[in-house]
């Protein structure tokens, strides 16, 4: 697996998209910090941008990369190695390349302008989202032979997780606003890795106080050590389960 990973990383290190991704993130992040006088406000804006951009670009890049590599992947499958090593090597390499780009593009400005708990949480959750959406992108690419269909599914997945899911949660909260539904909302929020990342960062910025009772419930659960562990475990599952499914599907796939 590490042999495939090594050479895939060399290939990705020269990939113009990866470089452009890092530069885009850096431009946006630095621009927000420079335009906004208050680093906390800039961090909030950066969070919103990162939580939208990172999943989108991770899933689309992964899908397109896997499709572009399809013929070579077939050649690798003819070599004396297990298929799981091929797909894991490629997934790890893509995730690492995107992670480095993210840490460079967002991490450097954050370390300069807003070092601290909230900034580090943004970097940690951003890294986690990179891994999550790389795994999801790999799964979509392996399960779908058609490139246009695969990219379409990736975009729809992103739209659902960034927009639709939150809209549904808001509708539930509004519809049942006269009832104590926070015990239901908390686990539902944890089911979406983007919402989970957003909550963890907001708690560090101490915005929970602005959210009234809901914020207090979030603070009570996610702010505790146990809640943090549950959150990290949920993000871990979001990486592991799609990856496991990808490897399983690739092993059985007719190439």
């Amino acid at each position: 697996m590490w042999k495939v990973c090594k050479y895939t990383l060399i290939d990705l290190a020269r990939n113009k998209f990866a470089l452009g991704y890092a530069l885009l993130l850096m431009l946006v992040t630095m621009g927000l910090f420079m335009l906004e006088g208050d680093p906390t406000k800039a961090l909030i804006s950066t969070t919103q941008v990162a939580l939208a951009l990172v999943p989108l670009l991770s899933v689309v890049f992964t899908i397109i990369y896997f499709y572009n590599q399809y013929e070579f992947t077939v050649l690798l499958a003819v070599q004396p190695m297990h298929r799981r090593n091929i797909v894991m090597g490629q997934l790890v390499a893509v995730a690492l390349a995107l992670l480095v780009a993210f840490l460079f593009g967002v991490g450097l400005p954050v370390l300069v302008y807003a070092p601290g708990g909230a900034g580090y949480t943004l970097l940690l959750t951003g890294a986690a989202l990179t891994a999550v959406f790389t795994a999801i992108g790999g799964l979509i690419a392996v399960k779908n032979r058609d490139r246009a269909r695969g990219v379409g599914i990736g975009l729809v997945t992103w739209v659902i997780m960034v927009l639709v899911y939150d809209a549904i949660l808001l509708w539930i909260m509004f519809s049942f606003s006269d009832r104590p539904i926070e015990p239901v909302i908390v686990p539902l929020a944890a089911l979406n890795p983007i919402d989970l990342a957003r909550i963890l960062i907001m708690l560090k910025i101490d915005l929970a106080a602005l959210l009234g009772y809901t914020g207090a419930v979030y603070q009570q659960f996610f702010g505790s050590a146990g809640g943090m562990l549950v959150s990290l475990f949920a993000l871990f599952l979001w990486v592991v389960l799609p990856t496991f499914w990808t490897v399983s599907a690739f092993r059985r796939k007719n190439l």
Binding site: Y7, D11, A13, N15, N68, Q69, Y70, E71, F72, L75
Partner: peptide, 13 residues
């Protein structure tokens, strides 16, 4: 040993 009809490799290697 296998030589496919269409050859594609990682472009930046």
């Amino acid at each position: 040993g296998y030589m496919p009809q269409l050859s594609e490799f990682p472009r930046e290697l």
